[in-house]
Write a protein that binds this DNA or RNA. Sequence first.
DNA 1: GCATTCGATGAAGCATCCTTCAGGTTTGGA
DNA 2: TCCAAACCTGAAGGATGCTTCATCGAATGC
Lengths: 235, 235
Amino acid sequence: MSRAPAKQLEPRKTPVQTRSAVTVHAIAEATIQVLLERGPDRLTTTRVAARAGVSVGTLYQYFPNKQALLFAVLEDHLGRVAAAVEHASSASEQAPLSVMVEKVVTAFIDAKMLRADISLALYAVAAELDGARLVARLGSRTQRALARMLDTASDAHFEDAAFTAGMMLAAMSGTIRAVFEAGVRPKAVRRFRAELQLMCEGYLRAAARPAKECTGSGPGLAQCSQPSAAHTPDQ
Amino acid sequence: MSRAPAKQLEPRKTPVQTRSAVTVHAIAEATIQVLLERGPDRLTTTRVAARAGVSVGTLYQYFPNKQALLFAVLEDHLGRVAAAVEHASSASEQAPLSVMVEKVVTAFIDAKMLRADISLALYAVAAELDGARLVARLGSRTQRALARMLDTASDAHFEDAAFTAGMMLAAMSGTIRAVFEAGVRPKAVRRFRAELQLMCEGYLRAAARPAKECTGSGPGLAQCSQPSAAHTPDQ
DNA sequence: GCATTCGATGAAGCATCCTTCAGGTTTGGA
DNA sequence: TCCAAACCTGAAGGATGCTTCATCGAATGC
């Protein structure tokens, strides 16, 4: 989102001793804590360093600037989620749609929920630095994995699995975001999980061109519609 | 998102002469332009004022601080979208699901697309100030309108229309956000519109408890599942 | 024409905070 | 034990940018 020229985001120095490895981890963890307690605009490098129990100078030894620090934390979190979904996807190939949806949705929500606090705090971060690029990068990896899975569905066929996967991913990300921002309560999460499965499966069945016949469940549902053509996916 | 104590966000002074009304509008418009051209972290009050052709002092005569300025712009935009969806909802009561979905999705996308540039620029703003509260406020208004509409569907019945409406809203917001952030191309928008309708209708049919019988379209689709109970909605 | 309110100005105060660097401490191997 | 590399320190430089206020210009009512 930021128009600022992308600064150096790579780590300045790689830890070689155990001591510094601990330090780097402490800094990353402190970043999240400060983010949660003070909010994104009250997050200063000095504060993060203090929280981590080191001095600012140390922080700058491993992260060239503040953006790089936030970027690293964001990357780590998104990477975990992406990996979880990819794993669930590849493990569910050849399965029927309902199983795929259940596995993927569960994996996605669990990965996000594992550290719901971080997820929430990072939404603001993603907007400030050019998180869009990072989201795009990790997102498209995930999207490809999802598409590969969809292509192997035992009970459905997709004209353009990549596009469909993109929509599904967007729906999952979007809805979970809404849930986070509304405040997560444990009960609600269980219900949300079930409902998101309904949504994904409902969408996939509607988007699929069933190999057999069209078993519409009511008038108006464009269940047999053929997408105009195979465009390039939108994500 | 911000933990900062909510500052005064209300306008400091209401324009009484035409002159100042023009000024206020110019400032708001300039805010958007600066946001688009320089990005959120390069947006300064001085820059906005200069762009609007006034001095900083003037800006502070109508907006108590920078946050209030951004807040006003965000509120205006979200308000327009909310109004569009509400209008489409109330205009589609008593209709079948497919019509409802078509009207609402179209209204939503059109409202967002009308000034796609603003939508995109404001995602960052919403994260920085406590946009969550604003989104919640306007969102729940919209959600209620959607729920009212769903309750009158001629061909479906919902156990908990409020919850279902929340999910649908989240899906719409989430997916359109993904599209915006991926970069909008006109062709893709048309396709996205159709696909989002598929998704919403697919979800609603899956979430509804059909009055007649359960016409499942395949194994595994929990089309007749009864949500555990009527909880309070999640948004 | 005058007084009062409204509107606009912009230099300067003030605060925040990112980042550096010169010099200290710790570690691990020789 | 000693040394070189790794690691850490934190005060200070330097830049940015929000916000105020004393002052001037414009409009409106009488």
